[in-house]
Simulated scan of single mutants.
Amino acid sequence: MKSILYFLLVCVVISCQDIPSVEKPANLIERTTMQEIIYDVAIINGARGYDVQKLSKYGVTPETYIFDKYNIDSLQFAENVTYYSSDIESYKEMYLDIQKRVDEEFLHFDSIAKVEKKVKDSLRTEKAKSLRKKKDSLKSKGLDTIIGKKEKKQTITTFPSKSAKEVVIDSL
């Protein structure tokens, strides 16, 4: 039993190794620029998940858009992501800043969408009111046939007091 414990202890000690730190890349992208790049990647990934056809309609290829915009290549981007992600706390702060920015923009665009919807609803309501007024004025002038909604007189039909089944039985 002791030999097994010693063996496991040796395995644990051997398996613990020194992880080398990531060296600073030759083409280091500044932290603020890297945040902008990661933000743009998040927006493009969101757009890709929302409507790929719209991206292709405007000629945006998500794979190369970021690289062209920031004048970087995929290797430089990968090296910088590796470098910045080696410091977990700093990388987490970057992502929290990006998340805060996305949330603020979402609230901004959401409020604009609500205002636009309110305006559209009020225009629709105003149009319905004007149509109702026009219809009422035509009715008051006796021109309701122009609208195509002539009032129909309802006729009341009376049914015999006996049900159809009783009538058939009585006739036999």
Rank of each mutant, 00 (worst) to 15 (best):
N27M: 09
I29Q: 05
I29F: 03
E30I: 03
R31G: 00
T33W: 09
T33F: 05
T33H: 10
Q35Y: 03
E36L: 11
E36A: 13
I38G: 01
I38E: 07
I38T: 02
Y39G: 01
Y39E: 06
D40R: 09
V41S: 08
V41D: 12
A42W: 04
A42S: 15
I44T: 08
N45C: 13
N45L: 05
N45E: 15
A47I: 05
A47D: 12
R48M: 11
R48S: 12
G49N: 15
D51S: 10
V52N: 13
Q53W: 11
S56R: 15
K57I: 08
Y58L: 10
Y58T: 04
Y58W: 15
G59V: 08
V60R: 01
T61H: 04
E63A: 12
T64L: 10
Y65G: 02
Y65I: 00
I66S: 06
K69I: 07
K69H: 09
Y70M: 01
Y70R: 07
N71V: 05
I72M: 11
D73N: 15
Q76E: 12
Q76V: 14
F77E: 01
F77D: 06
E79G: 00
E79L: 15
N80L: 04
N80D: 05
V81A: 04
V81W: 13
T82F: 07
T82Q: 09
Y83T: 12
Y84L: 09
S85F: 04
S85Y: 07
S86F: 06
D87C: 04
D87M: 07
D87Y: 11
I88H: 09
I88P: 00
I88R: 02
S90C: 07
S90L: 14
Y91T: 09
E93D: 11
M94G: 05
M94N: 00
L96V: 03
L96H: 01
L96P: 01
L96N: 08
L96Y: 10
I98Q: 02
I98T: 01
K100Q: 10
R101H: 04
R101W: 01
R101A: 06
V102Y: 05
E104Y: 08
E104T: 11
E105K: 06
E105R: 11
E105P: 00
H108V: 08
H108W: 02
F109L: 03
F109P: 00
F109C: 02
D110R: 15
S111M: 12
S111E: 14
V115H: 10
V115L: 13
V115D: 03
V115M: 11
E116G: 04
K117P: 02
V119A: 10
K120R: 15
K120I: 11
K120D: 03
L123G: 09
L123N: 13
R124N: 06
R124I: 03
T125V: 06
T125H: 05
T125P: 01
E126C: 12
K127L: 08
A128L: 08
A128S: 13
S130H: 07
L131Q: 09
R132S: 14
K133I: 14
K133M: 05
K135C: 03
K135R: 15
